[in-house]
Design a protein around this nucleic acid. Sequence first.
RNA 1: GGGCGCAUAGCUCAGCGGUAGAGCGCUGCUCUUACAAAGCAGAUGUCGGCGGUUCGAAUCCGUCUGUGCCCACCA
Length: 873
Amino acid sequence: MTDNTQQHPHSVPELPTQYAPAEVEGPLYERWVERGYFEADAQSDKEPYTIVIPPPNVTGSLHLGHAFEHTLIDALTRRKRMQGYEVLWQPGMDHAGIATQNVVERELAKEGKSRHDLGREAFVERVWQWKAESGGQISGQMRRLGDGVAWSRERFTMDEGLSKAVQTIFKKLYDDELIYRAERIINWCPRCLTAISDIEVEYQDDDGELVSITYGEGDASIVVATTRAETMLGDTAVAVHPEDERYKHLVGTEIELPLTGRRIPVVADEHVDPEFGTGAVKVTPAHDPNDFEIGRRHDLPSLTVLDEHGVITVHGPFLGLDRFEARSAIVGALRAEGRIVAEKRPYTHSVGHCSRCKTTLEPRQSMQWWVKTAPLAKAAADAVRGGEVKIHPQEMEKRYFEWVDNLHDWCISRQLWWGHRIPVWYGPDGEMVCVGPDEQPPTGEGWHQETDVLDTWFSSGLWPFSTLGWPERTESVEKFYPNSVLVTGYDILFFWVVRMMMFGLYAMDGTPPFHTIALHGMVRDQFGKKMSKSFGNAVNPLDWMDKYGSDAVRFTLARGANPGVDVPIGEDWVQGSRNFANKVWNATRFALMNGATVEGELPPAEQMSATDRWILSRLNSVVAEVDAYYDDYQFAKLTDALFHFAWDEVFDWYVELSKTTFMGGGEPAKVSARVLGEVLDVTLRLLHPVVPFVTETLWTALTGKESVVVAEWPADSGFRDAGAEREIEELQRVITEVRRFRSDQGLQPGQKVPARLELSGTALAAHEGAIRQLLRLQPAGDGFQATATLPVAGATVALDLSGVIDFEAERKRLAKDLAAAEKEKAQATAKLGNEAFLAKAPEAVKEKIQKRLAAAEADIERISGQLAALPQG
RNA sequence: GGGCGCAUAGCUCAGCGGUAGAGCGCUGCUCUUACAAAGCAGAUGUCGGCGGUUCGAAUCCGUCUGUGCCCACCA
C-alpha cells in the first residue's frame, strides 16, 4: 500500500510562489481515499486505535463546531496511523428522531401538507429521501475538511444492523426488568405531539401572570395562586401544609371549586411551602408533576382537561378553547364571579419549551416507556470513580457525577413516526409481548405493535459497538471495542456520553465503551460570543475553507483548543493560519531551491556547523514536546509549539543563518542541505495531522515518497547539543542587539555599513559571515572610523557611521536600558541579601537569581561600554 | 434556589508559588538569495477590588464586585 520505505531520486517539482489551497486540497483527499489509507482492517496484527465520530444529525449541514471536533479527531487518528496503529475512525450519522421529523414536516408544510396527509409509511419514506440528500451533503463537507474516516464502514443509526442492536438491547433490558411502561406526568409538546425527556426541555424566563383565586365560600374559603388558571378545571383538591394553623380547620373538609359546581377536598401535604403565597396550593394531578405526586399520596382522582393539542376537553363554556385562550377566558369568568382576589400581577418565571420547536410545553399525564436507570447509572458512575474511565480535563468529572448521580428514570418513548419502533406487541386481551430480533411477532386477531418510537439517544447510546456489528460477535467488535478515546463536547456529556457509558457497560459485560473521554469546548465568535443563526454570527465553515483552505481553518481551531474550554474563532485568525501555511510553503520552496534533501544518512555531528547542530537539537526537543502534548490532548499547546518552532526558529533563524552557508557552497552547503531537508521532513510530518493538505504537497515534493499520510511519525533521536544551543543564542543576541541599534539610528534595513568585528576568542568567530550578511556589514576599508562600538556576548562590533547619524537617541535608549539593568541588579542583590530567602528558598531558585544578577551586571558593563563609546556632541 | 467556571496588553486567550506571555491589532523602517499572506525594530499591563498565608502571590486561602454556563416541581 505504500512505497515510503523506498527512496528514489526525484525531480524537484516547481512550486508557485504562493500557496493556493483550493487547487490542491480536493484531489489530494480523493487520492487518499482511493489508496485506502483510511480503511481499517479488523484482521490486522497492529494494535487498534478507535474513535467513533459523534454522529451528526442528518438534519442539515456541518457547522464550525463539527469542523472543530473533526479536526481534533482527525489529528489524533492521523498521528496514531503514522505511529503504526490499526486506526479506525468510524463515520456515520444519527437519524435524530424528532429533529429530523420536524425538518421534513416543515418541508411538507411548504407544500401545504401535514404528515397525516401522507400517512405513516409514506411519511417515513419521505424522511429517508431527505436523509439521502442531506447525508450526502455532510459527507461532502467531511471530505473537504480532510476527515480520514473509514468510508466503507459508514453507518446510520437506522441501518438494519443498528436497528437490530436497538431491538436486542431493548429486549435484554425488558427481560431484566429495566424497561417498564407506566403512566406519569411527562413533558408534552402540543406541537410535536410527543413526549420529550427532561433533558430536551429548554427552560426560559417567560412573562406570566400570577392570579389569586378564591375557592369555596365564606369561612370555608381559601385563596390559591396560579400562573396556569386553565388547569383549575382539572383541580381535584387544595393542599396546605399540615402544620399551617390558618387552614387546619379546613383539612378534611370539602370546598367548592368555582365554575365547575364540583366540590374538592382540602388535604394536608408536606410538600406545600406555607411561606409561599397564601400557603395553599390548587392540585391538578393530571397536569402538573408535583400535583401528580400529591394526588398519589392522597389517592386523589386525576382529571384530564386538556387534549394532546392543548385544547380544553371539559364540557361547558370553555370546551374547544386553546390553553392560552382558555386561560384568559377563565380568569375573566372568575373575575365576573368576584373570585379574583388581588389584581393579577406580572410574574416572570421559568417555563419549559420544546428544544426542537420552542413551543411551550404542557405537563401531561400519559402512558410511556421508561428505562430504570439506577443500576445502569451506578455502573456508569463507578467506572469513572474507579479510574477505569478517565475524563479529560479532569475538572469535568464533577459535571459528569452531577449528572449521573442524580439521574431520574429515562422516558424513552416518543409519539413520533421517525425512529425505531418499540418492539412490543399488544394482544387483544391486554397481553404484552416484547419481541427480540430473531423472534416472530405474535400474529392473529387483535395483535398490534406499539406505535411509539424510541428516543433518538437510545440508539446513539449503542454507537461505540453497534457500528462494529454488535450484537454479532464480529471481528470488528473484537478488534475495535472498546474505543480508544471519545472526543466530544462537554455540552453532550449527559445526552450522549452517559447513555453510552450505561449501555456499553451493560451490553458488553462491564467493559466500558472507551477508557478516556476527551471533552472539548464550544466554538464561539471572535468576541467569545456563542454562535447562533439568530444572532447572525454563525459562520459556514465552507466559506472560510474556500477562501483560506481547510488547513487554515483546521489550524486555527486546533490552536484554540484548550481542553474543555470554549474556542473563539474569527476570520482574521483563519487568515493568520493561512499565512502560516503560506510561510511553510515558501520555506520549503527555498529549501528545494537550495538542494535540501532527505537522501542519505545525516552527516556525523563533527561535520556539522553549530547552526546545524543547534536546529537538530531543537528539533528533537520539539518532537518530544509535541508527543507529550498529544498524549495529554493539549491541541492548543502542540499547535502553538509547532507554529513557533517552525516560524521563529526554523524559518526566521535557521534559514536566514544558512543562507551564507548555501552561498558559500562546497561541503558545508551540502551538510546544511541535508540538515535542512531533515528538519523540514520532520517538521512537516509533525504538522501533518493538523494541516494534512499543505504538508502532503510539500512533503511529497521534498522526499519524493508516496504520501505523508502513511509516513512514520517522527521519533526523538535523543540528539541534544546544549553547547550549540548556547552558541546560537549568543549569536542571536549579537544580531538582535546590532539590529536594534541600526533601527534606533534610523538606518534603512538594506543600508550597508562598514564594520570591524572582533570575535576572536569567542564562539562567534565561525559565524562572521552570517553576522555580516544578516546585519549588512561591509568589511572595514581604509579610513575606517569606529564611531560606534557595541560590545555583546564577549564580542565587539565596531561600526563606522561617521556623518550618518545623531547619537542622541541612542544615548537616551542606552540610559534607559542601563537604568533597567541597575534596577534589576538591585532587586537581585536585595533578594540574595535577604536571610529569610536564603534560608527557605530552594537552591534552584537561588541559582536563578544568581544568574539574573550576573546577567544584569554584564548588561550594565555592556551598556556602559556602549555609552562610553558614543562620540560626544 | 443550588452547582460549576471565568475576571491577565485594545481584542481573544495561555501562564497557576519564584524577573508578566502568545496570536491578532497598533507604531516606524524596508521588495534584503523563499515568502509584502513577508522581514526587521518598537510601544502597551498597580495580572477585577479588599484582606490573609508565605522569604516571595497573577499563581494558594477568605471575601466583595462583575460575568458566563449547567441544573432545579416552588404553585
